[in-house]
């Protein structure tokens, strides 16, 4: 596979560094995938501020958001450092995590499609969180043993957080699935609608292969098996019907082909740095 991705975006002022032009090794792409998924899902939880179904849930939703933004920052900082060193002499010195978060356009984001899906009702929110958590926990378990020390450290810390997220989201899926008739209907609908985005969680591509060979990414078969086991167990307890694993799947986030929702999410998130491109501090 090609080890570099180079693109030119025209809407940036000359002084601004063109992030997408920077050499992108598979490791950088892999880190962007991790960081962008955490960032975009964190942004979705930020959008829920003040809208939780109970006051206690405000606390919980924001705790998840804080964890995810923290993880995003860790992954993106690492990615930015690698980009800066790898493109030395190429005038890319000032790329940092904020630059990656706030100055890239949608096609340069590498997050999973599931995390950019709208908040919908609480069943949609919690369904999205659960399907992601069930994958995230098992991925991080693998990454905590990565040959790359820094990745292993960030993963180990993130794993503790994700484990709690999974506990909480599983319990809510079960409560809603096995709660009232209305909550059951809503939860089932949410799972059905989100299901098409789960194929991407367990999709294994060239980047994953390079990372597997480098002793970073975990074995994909184990990841798939564990993910399915968690999903089956929780959906079953929630009295929900699991859609088939071989259903048609919508993919593309990992290579920058997103759903329509990401553009709006970024427009809001990146509003200030984009409107005031000369501002260097905030």
């Amino acid at each position: 596979m090609s080890n570099t991705v180079s693109k030119t975006l025209e809407h940036k002022t000359p002084e601004q560094k063109n992030v997408a032009q920077v050499t992108q090794t598979p490791l950088v792409t892999y880190l962007l995938r991790l960081g962008d998924s955490a960032l975009v899902l964190g942004q979705r939880s930020a959008q829920l501020c003040g809208k939780a179904p109970a006051l206690e849930e405000e606390m919980a939703l924001m705790n998840v958001g804080l964890d995810l933004f923290g993880q995003a920052r860790n992954w993106l900082e690492y990615a930015a450092e690698l980009m800066a060193t790898e493109s030395e002499g190429n005038n890319q010195g000032n790329i940092d995590a904020d630059h990656l978060a706030f100055r890239r356009d949608a096609q340069d984001f590498r997050n999973l499609l599931i995390v950019e899906q709208p908040n919908g009702d609480f069943a949609d929110t919690i369904g999205r969180q659960f399907l992601f958590d069930a994958w995230h926990v098992h991925l991080l378990e693998g990454l905590a043993a990565a040959s790359d020390k820094r990745i292993a450290e960030v993963a180990a810390k993130s794993l503790k957080e994700a484990t709690y997220h999974l506990r909480r989201s599983s319990e809510w899926v079960i409560r809603l699935g096995d709660g009232t008739e209305e909550s059951h209907t809503r939860m089932q609908r949410a799972v059905n609608n989100l299901w098409q985005f789960t194929g991407e969680l367990v999709q294994f591509d060239e980047i994953d292969q390079v990372m597997l060979d480098a002793g970073i990414a975990p074995d994909p078969d184990t990841l798939v098996t564990r993910w399915k086991a968690t999903v089956d167990e929780v959906l079953n307890e929630a009295t929900l019907t699991r859609p088939p694993y071989d259903a048609w799947m919508y993919t593309g986030g990992k290579v920058g082909h997103h759903t329509e929702h990401l553009g709006f999410l970024l427009a809001e998130m990146q509003y200030l740095p984009r409107t005031y491109p000369d501002a260097t501090v905030w």
Binding site: C49, F69, W282
Partner: peptide, 30 residues
């Protein structure tokens, strides 16, 4: 009081500011 700050949480200009603001709003809920 969470609402006027929540109004800017999604538009906080850096990751650090976003984390700080989110922690602050969460404290207010608390």
């Amino acid at each position: 009081g969470m609402l006027p700050e929540g109004n800017w949480l999604t538009r906080a200009p850096t990751l650090k500011r976003k984390l700080q603001l989110m922690a602050k709003i969460q404290d207010e809920a608390g």
